[in-house]
Design a protein around this nucleic acid. Structure first.
Lengths: 256, 256
DNA sequence: CGCGATTTGTGCGTGTCTTCACAAGCGCCT
DNA sequence: AGGCGCTTGTGAAGACACGCACAAATCGCG
């Protein structure tokens, strides 16, 4: 294996297609595949079919094959995918072959939890520095790291070659922190604050918002309830009417 | 307003289109609009244009108008949208007019932070119960709530009419908890555990995974670095070659 | 009362994502 | 060696989402 590369690069060092630009939707699924692959590897498998991996990752098998095909041809027809090879490939594409340093800004409620979360280290990330704007929190030690003042961000970011900034501050402080991160050369930000950040081109921001997730679930609850309640057209079907404030919703069919 | 409804329902109680089924992408954005609207309302605005709201929510104005048009015609041409009315509308559609009870399972590192997160209450959600499987944690009081054993879930879920379950357990326990939640009649689950859950039809699961977000950011970092490094085609462009283990990546253009 | 400025709501072209269905390739068994 | 079953990789079609650009509607002013 790993010798028979597609005829195209006559004297390329190896079959490295120099980062094919993947569809964004595919990129978002690769980490899930990766986790499923690690799980399978731990249970002793050597190879896995697209069907098997797809069900382990909770996606359609055709979608999985198309996703993986974007990385190149790393499966064997009639057999499946070699676990070790595929893991290596995905980790390479995701840039996990090198450990990236993460700076966490905001050591409050959520920040503490994130600082102690071991899911970072196990996936190739290293929390390299903690920051907070509150002087009373500066100096505190969390998981072997001392909380620094956010004003030290530029210097520390350079020293530790921070690649990713995580914002876990209140919304009011988030934009300022983002600006500081960008100024310090950070080009990837994970934002837990409930607000939109404006950053220059070339900087990637991903947002995680618990309240939004709950509200989306709430919508579906609402819809499910209205679907099981309305077909009956029983008596007062006026629920919460938007124009008029009035609310008359017995229970919205709470129980099954 | 609210009188001129489209001719169709001759004697409907009000202009309630009984939950139009919105595109999923729209639903995912409505909470963001809602937050922007609340912010604008607090700063004294009465109305807002699609352009203004769009920039506050970080989206294209045409997209915003199309999203809102799915809810009905709640804007006024030449003026904009009435803040109060629009807030009311979106909250209604999202099912936020009734407070939904949330059960949080897993009071570990992350669970503690979630239990103390005030973003829930401020958006119409009430954490009604805390659960954990670890007997040593049962009985602990967090934010005025006593941690119960997860085996009490069915009983408590019924008593408190839990609408949404939040799983903040280790991955190994998540599926079991999900099963218990489903058995208890919960049809919406927010999963923080790094694993895929299998649930019956009709149950909605949303997943939040910090490691995945970081890996997606890592991909973009990797890509950005390879874009600024490769065009030079300087000497050894063999980076981390997937097939052969070897790695030769000076710095991947870390600085700027 | 009419006109211009402004802003919504939407038809339409474009691009992306998903899914089906199947040819091509691989290994194994006879 | 040949055939058969299994699995990948992909062409094509459908579904969905996005953004432009403009007609329709509303306000304010002279």
């Amino acid at each position: 294996m790993s010798q028979h590369r597609p005829p195209g690069g006559p004297d390329r060092p190896a079959a490295v297609p120099a980062l094919p630009d993947l569809p964004e939707a595919t990129v978002a699924r690769l980490p899930e595949y990766l986790r499923a692959l690690h799980n399978l590897a731990e249970t002793g498998h050597e190879t896995v079919s697209s069907e098997g991996l797809a069900s382990a990752a909770g996606v359609n098998s055709a979608k999985l094959r198309k996703d993986l095909s974007h990385l190149g041809s790393y499966g064997t027809r009639g057999v499946g995918y070699d676990l070790a090879l595929l893991i290596e490939q995905i980790e390479y594409v995701l840039g996990l072959t090198q450990r990236r340093s993460v700076a966490l800004v905001g050591v409050g409620n959520l920040g503490h939890a994130l600082a102690g979360y071991d899911g970072f280290a196990t996936r190739g990330f290293r929390i390299a520095a903690l920051f907070d704007a509150d002087p009373s929190r500066v100096g505190e030690e969390i998981g072997g790291l001392v909380v620094r003042h956010v004003d030290d961000l530029p210097r520390v970011a350079a020293e530790e070659s921070i690649a990713i900034g995580v914002i876990a501050t209140p919304a009011a402080a988030a934009q300022r922190v983002a600006d500081q991160l960008v100024a310090a050369g950070v080009t990837s930000i994970l934002n837990f604050a409930p607000c939109v950040l404006s950053v220059p081109d070339g900087v990637d921001v991903r947002k995680v918002d618990l309240a939004i997730e709950l509200q989306i679930l709430s919508f579906h609850e609402h819809r499910k309830a209205s679907l099981t309640a309305l077909p009956a057209t029983g008596g007062s079907t006026l629920t919460a009417l938007p124009g008029g404030l009035a609310v008359n919703d017995p229970q919205e069919a709470t129980g099954t």
